[in-house]
Lab assay of single mutants.
Amino acid sequence: PKDEAKKKVKEAIKRGDEETAKRIAKKYNLDWDDAKREADEER
């Protein structure tokens, strides 16, 4: 599900692992900028 994928993307971003985050986002066709902004807001 997309929500689960987005959570994984945000967790990867918070760990500083943007490569993984981008790969997950691409795989699930998520909006990378959107997920990154959300992760930054939660930090």
Rank of each mutant, 00 (worst) to 15 (best):
E18W: 15
Y28H: 09
A25H: 00
D40P: 04
D33R: 05
I24V: 04
E41H: 09
K22L: 09
R23T: 10
E18F: 15
G16N: 04
D17R: 03
E4H: 11
E11M: 07
A5W: 14
A35C: 12
D34P: 02
K2R: 14
E42W: 06
E42I: 07
K26A: 15
P1G: 15
R43S: 14
K10P: 01
P1R: 14
E42L: 06
K10A: 11
A21M: 00
D33I: 09
P1M: 14
W32M: 05
D40V: 09
E4K: 11
P1V: 14
P1D: 15
E11R: 05
N29W: 04
K7P: 02
D34A: 14
T20Q: 10
K7G: 05
T20V: 08
A5I: 11
L30Y: 03
A35F: 15
I24W: 05
V9N: 00
R15A: 11
A39W: 09
I24K: 01
R15L: 09
D33H: 08
E4P: 03
K6P: 03
I24A: 02
T20M: 13
D3S: 12
E4Y: 13
E41V: 07
D40L: 13
G16L: 02
A21C: 02
E42M: 06
K7M: 12
I24G: 00
G16M: 02
A5K: 03
N29A: 09
I24Y: 03
A39N: 05
D34E: 15
D17G: 01
K14E: 10
K14P: 00
K36E: 04
E38M: 05
V9L: 14
A25Q: 01
K6E: 04
R43Y: 12
K8R: 14
A21W: 00
P1I: 15
D33N: 11
A21P: 01
A5C: 09
Y28K: 01
E41K: 08
R37Y: 06
A25G: 01
E4S: 10
D17H: 05
K14F: 13
D17V: 01
L30F: 04
A39L: 11
A25D: 01
R37W: 08
K36G: 03
D40N: 11
E38V: 04
